[in-house]
């Protein structure tokens, strides 16, 4: 009997002194984290990182939701998905005291509406969606607002991100509505307006828009600023414009799904990413702006003064943070489908 009791006690207490497996399942956007950072982390901590990537928030959300968080320890949703995941109880409440480097973050990017007091998320990078163009083919200044893309001289030469929210949001903004507008009549008008743009659209593409600009497939179109930054570094003719109607603003955040198995390792990784010298490696490689003030101090002036990655306050004048539209997503989808069907008939 005594022996049995002892065994039972042993069995019950094992988990408390068994250390977390030296493993971390990280699920991030494609081309969003240099491999050197992962190697360095493993070298320093002995924690093996299983790295997987996705192209859209939707794919990430569907996977995390189906696995109920058990498959991933760390994911990187955009702000409008952070709010959704918080609402659906999918995220672990963070213990910020475990993140000694949290203080390095720019307070302007903290405590946002999508996650007040950053109870669940830590900013990873932020950026904008604006207009890119090739200055060899299009005069500087010819495009200064979204509406300029409707000009017939850009026939069959534009790229649109294959992203429902971005494209529908642009249509809404050109008409003077907010990008997060959910009024069906406004969405219908945006659809009609976007239909007029179809002859100018050469492709819908979101995997790596910079490639299409660099290879001369398109003259202009929608692009994320980080992609434009890298394209510009490779070919100075590729320029980026902050359209007058306003860019879309987004923040991608590190979050720990509810049910993650390697909690401590996830904290370690977040804290590691927030270190100035590590943030510098990331910022230099991926081209998006760092939310980390200590990182910005380390970066060369040439980079931090580049308006593509680090916009001025003026550039962000009408910028709008993308928001979760809840059930109205169905309406967005409806008009997006109509637009794609119309595109197929061109």
């Amino acid at each position: 009997m005594k022996k049995l009791l002892f065994m039972l006690l042993f069995a019950l207490s094992t988990p408390s002194f068994a250390e977390e497996a030296k493993e971390l399942n990280l699920y991030n956007w494609a081309e969003y984290l240099p491999k050197a950072v992962l190697d360095k982390f493993t070298q320093e901590t002995g924690i093996k990182v299983n790295y997987a990537t996705y192209d859209t928030n939707e794919v990430m959300y569907a996977k995390v939701k189906t696995l109920r968080g058990e498959g991933y320890d760390l994911v990187v949703p955009s702000n409008y998905y952070v709010s959704r995941m918080i609402r659906e109880n999918m995220l672990t409440k963070l213990d910020l005291s475990k993140l000694s480097n949290f203080k390095n973050l720019d307070s302007k990017l903290l405590n946002q509406t999508y996650d007040p007091n950053n109870q669940f998320s830590v900013p990873y990078t932020w950026g904008t969606t604006g207009i890119g163009f090739n200055s060899k083919q299009i005069k500087m200044g010819a495009i200064s607002k979204w509406a300029d893309l409707w000009d017939i001289k850009y026939k069959n030469s534009l790229l649109m991100l294959d992203d429902m929210r971005e494209v529908m949001g642009m249509g809404l903004k050109v008409l003077g509505y907010a990008a997060n507008d959910t009024n069906e009549e406004h969405l219908n008008q945006a659809y009609e307006k976007l239909k007029e743009l179809l002859p100018n659209i050469k492709m819908f593409y979101a995997e790596s828009p910079k490639v299409m600009f660099l290879e001369g497939e398109v003259k202009s179109g929608m692009i994320w600023n980080g992609e434009a930054f890298i394209a510009n570094r490779e070919n100075a003719d590729i320029q980026y414009v902050y359209p007058a109607e306003g860019v879309t603003l987004w923040v991608d955040n590190l979050v720990i799904p509810q049910g993650a198995k390697h909690l401590e390792n996830a904290y370690k990784f977040i804290n590691f990413i927030l270190r100035p010298e590590i943030g510098k490696i990331i910022a230099e490689e991926i081209g998006y702006a760092s939310p980390n003030l200590e990182v910005i101090k380390l970066l060369p002036k040439k980079v931090t003064e580049n308006r593509i990655a680090y916009p001025s306050a003026d550039d962000l004048k009408n910028a709008q943070l993308q928001q979760d539209v809840g059930d109205s997503l169905v309406l967005f989808e409806k008009y997006w489908q109509k637009l794609k069907v119309a595109a197929g008939k061109q």
């Binding site: 859209t56 939707e58 794919v59 569907a62 294959d162 429902m164 659209i201 050469k202 492709m203 819908f204 593409y205 997503l329 169905v330 989808e333 489908q337 794609k340 069907v341 595109a343 197929g344 061109q346």
Partner: peptide, 25 residues
């Protein structure tokens, strides 16, 4: 059609994929 046609048409495959991912229907 997505890669060679520039995703400019909606086919049954896209429709199904969109319902499961972006529209969450």
């Amino acid at each position: 059609p997505d890669l060679l046609g520039g995703a400019k048409a909606l086919l049954i495959g896209n429709l199904i994929q969109n319902q499961f991912l972006s529209a969450r229907d």
